[in-house]
Design a protein around this nucleic acid. Structure first.
Length: 303
DNA sequence: CAGTTAACCTGTCAGC
DNA sequence: TGCTGACAGGTTAACT
């Protein structure tokens, strides 16, 4: 469930279930799902077993669970990852790659199933480093203490930019970065080092809402047009979040296996051949960066 | 150095 | 009913 709204749905579902729980078991069914684990400091199983989980944090599409060891369990869903909470003894999920058994002080035992069809996602235990700006590393919901983990970030996530719904996101820094980019605006929106959390669906939706062609040079956008685009990005991400994310099929679900409803609200993505909701022109799909770009050839002109 | 492409994977679906 | 090819929501290493 890969873009920001879908990952946040997973984070918010995980938070009450895993916070304060202890890891009592680790089962690895497919080693490829540990691709991002850094084995130098110990095996994945050894790093997790017996550790207590302190919170559930997210930046962009990256999720991590800070541990009482000072490290964190980093989760990335890739293109097809799911995190499903199950009652111990439940029938195994299809394409189950990793299972954690947790013991929660009040809720008892729980299975956390990491399911991933394409195996582009991963789980990893990583060291934490201080955030470069001294601000919180990511979004962790309510229940703020002033714990050390808040101001730290897994080392493999440190290069990821803040996302546009992070209160510490700097709009002016983003506009300045765009002005320096010698590439098309969609490529820039998808660059997680510039702004994080946006993927192919929400990039197309935001560009449609802001009436900008995906190949418009990033540096050519006026400050006003860039501000319009950023506002569109935020509006769309927040609406998608409120509707439980985008699901076309059972692939993209929350921790309880339920789908979101935002697919009904998509104006551009996957709508090639259907009329633009503003002008009636038929929407177009073009190949770009090995994926589809969906847009209105009339509303979104290159200029 | 920055920008762009190829590779990593499995499953589903349309067309023959 | 198979078989084949296109396609799928991401990231990063290795190109140019």
């Amino acid at each position: 469930m890969p873009e920001l709204p879908e990952v946040e749905i997973v984070r918010s579902g995980l938070q009450p279930a895993v916070t304060a729980a202890r890891v009592t078991g680790v089962e690895i069914f497919d080693e490829r799902s540990l691709r991002r684990h850094v084995p130098a400091a110990g095996s994945f199983t050894d790093q997790l077993t017996g550790r207590r989980i302190l919170a559930a944090v997210r930046r962009g599409k990256f999720l991590w669970l800070p541990l009482d060891s000072g490290r964190a369990l980093v989760i990335h869903l890739g293109m097809s990852g799911q995190v499903l909470l199950r009652t111990p003894g439940a029938a195994p999920d299809r394409m189950l790659r990793i299972r954690l058994t947790l013991e929660h002080p009040t809720n008892g035992e729980l299975w956390v199933n990491f399911v991933d069809q394409r195996v582009f996602g991963s789980m990893a235990v990583d060291t934490m480093v201080a955030t470069s700006d001294g601000l919180p590393g990511g979004y962790f919901g309510t229940g703020e203490t002033d714990a050390a983990w808040q101001y730290r970030i897994p080392s493999q996530v440190a290069h990821i930019a803040r996302d546009p719904i992070d209160p510490s996101f700097s709009s002016s820094a983003f506009f300045r970065a765009l002005a320096r980019k010698n590439t098309g605006i969609k490529r820039a929106l998808l660059d997680q080092n510039l702004i994080s959390g946006i993927g192919n669906i929400y990039a197309d939706e935001a560009l449609f809402a802001a009436r900008i062609h995906y190949e418009q040079p990033a540096a050519s956008l006026s400050r006003a047009r860039a501000a319009t685009l950023l506002a569109a990005v935020r509006t769309i991400l927040e609406r998608a979040l409120a509707e439980g994310g985008t699901s076309f099929d059972a692939q993209y679900v929350n921790v309880n296996g339920q789908s979101g409803y935002f697919a009904h609200s998509l104006e551009a993505y996957g709508r090639q051949g259907t009329p633009c909701s503003r002008c009636g022109t038929l929407l177009v799909r073009e190949q770009f960066m090995n994926r589809g770009s969906h847009f209105c050839p009339r509303c979104q002109r290159l200029r």
